[in-house]
Design a binder for these strands. Sequence first.
RNA 1: GCCGAUGUGGCUCAGUGGUAGAGUAGUUGAUUCGUAAUCAAUUGGUCGCGAGUUCAAAUCUCGCCAUCGGCUCCA
Length: 636
Amino acid sequence: MVSSLTQPQSRSILVPRDFANEPDIQQLALIRHTCAHIMAMAVQKLYPGTKVAILFQRGFANGPVTETGFFYDFDSPVTFTRDNFAKIVKEMRRIIKANLPIVREVVSKQDIQAEIADLGEPYKLEILDSIPDGEIITRYFIGSPDTGKSTKSNVEVDPSLLAPIIIPPQSWWDLCAEPHLNSTGEIDPNSFALESLAGAYWRGDETKPMLQRIYGTAWETPAQLEAYLTQKEEALKRDHRKLGRELKLFSIQEDAGGGLVFWHPRGAKIRYIIEDYWRKAHLDSGYELLYTPHIANLDLWKTSGHFDFYQESMFDSMDVDEKAYQIKPMNCPFHVLTYKHELHSYRELPLRWAELGTVYRYERSGALHGLMRVRGFTQDDAHVFCLPEQIASEILRVLNLTEQILSDFGFNDYEINLSTRPEKSVGADEVWELATSALIEALDAKGWNYTIDEGGGAFYGPKIDLKIKDAIGRLWQCSTIQVDFNLPERFEMEYVAADNTRKRPIMIHRAIFGSLERFFGILIENYAGNFPLWLAPIQVRLLPVTEEVRDYCDRVITTLKQAGFRVELDHSHERLGKMIRTAELEKIPVVAVIGMKEMETQTFSIRTRKGGDLGLLNLVDLQQKMQQVIQDKSSL
RNA sequence: GCCGAUGUGGCUCAGUGGUAGAGUAGUUGAUUCGUAAUCAAUUGGUCGCGAGUUCAAAUCUCGCCAUCGGCUCCA
């Protein structure tokens, strides 16, 4: 609720780009949907007693189809493991190769009810019950309902493949409302794969039984499957948890507790650069900086409303001089208190206050995920207190700053959501109207496309969320801008209006990175650890070829350091090849090889991570080149 | 929190009831070397933690913790 600046969803969506042939989305949906049914059929045949349990659920409006494949939920006496996959895939291929027809049938609730009861499929029955009366009920058969024989199709079928598929009652069906392929043979038997196993609550409800879910991926052609799997491998290589350890950026330690991040020297160096950049950008954009405490009297959270609604996500309070103190789960109330500390005139507004505020939230153990979902994190938080008529221009200002900052980190592709008033909400109609149209006005002025999420706003005000697209096409939610009518009310915030009456200011919450931890994780994955020169914790490493040049190297390092470069000497006494290899593995952007030749001619043999051997440069040229690249925030 | 899996030197992993191993990193020595791995020696582990079974537990059982894949949650 209030405050927000949430840690957004922790996983990105992996969708491959760059197919030779862009897959047809409609066709893919049909393939995946049909694959899901084929998998269910295979599983039920192979593991008798397994019940299927799948339904249309929130977020999966198209049934058991995902961004990259499909899934099905089972309640089975068998506990599935990956070892079962080969067998299931084999059976699925048989079903596909048999080219069984897929037949849609409209059924009456009574008839089908009896049939399901006979089958002993309680989940199916429950799904049926939830279908409103009067709605058309359909089921889909795989294999002809009467004969179970293959469709007469122009696809040649090997009769030997048919034999194993005869399962009582010779065909398989499930309730389903969505369209399917016409026959199983339309799927390429080599363009799908089973991927993973997971627990999933029946109906997505954590009070209901836990089912076994099997995920698969499916495509039109084996080449597309291959491209997807390659993409997945690429994502794995970029995993910030792996790179964070390899590049000595950060750690999360069992001894300290889950979800608590240790920034090691190299990671901390990057964070320092990011923070420094962030502060400057905010000061330049008319913000002032705040620092506020990490704990405070619990009463604040009662006033703000957090305690009533979100106590579960707050760490327990601690006793201080017989009063309850709370470690802060968000910064907003502190900015409000700062505001309330003195009387403000309408002439002062808007006030823009920013803080890199570290907050702690209790996340359930199973939700923790590297840097993406943690228990202690630093928000790049800011609040704008303004007059109603200033909302649009302030939002536009925020959008401009957001664009500037994100593009400096290499993110130029966004997906934008505008969320409007939900059913349960506070605030007068006209204020909502004003705020929402102000958001739209700002988005239009920016010329950004956006999707409207009707009723998706917080109860205290409408919001804009922004997802950024990374180097391999994944989307990450970072920035959020929210108008808040609630906190000013609860804390009775005021300003003195022109007519000398007291009025409530509008409060805007916003974060651009979301949290530094999470954004750092995204940066690591976006750059695959190859940070651009301006962010690289070590920009240059000098590799001495022989002992004689070490003093010279030391002098060069002093010079470069004085010029502001992050530079160091390789002290290892290893051979050049080894030193280069080490620097490459550490993803150092620039290495300068220095031997007698270089020392005598006052030059550097430069090798960049991207460009390989760049040849000889003198000190001035090297500095100029690097300065330019740093200024451009690019790589060399 | 729930389902499933995993936890062995800093890292990657082998070791299925009988004396804890490899590679790599680290350290030391030799080599002074020209664009992705020089050679040799060597340090380092109460096998996540705690109980239990057993003559004997890294190995079997139970509990807890953490991590991973998901589910749920994400103010």
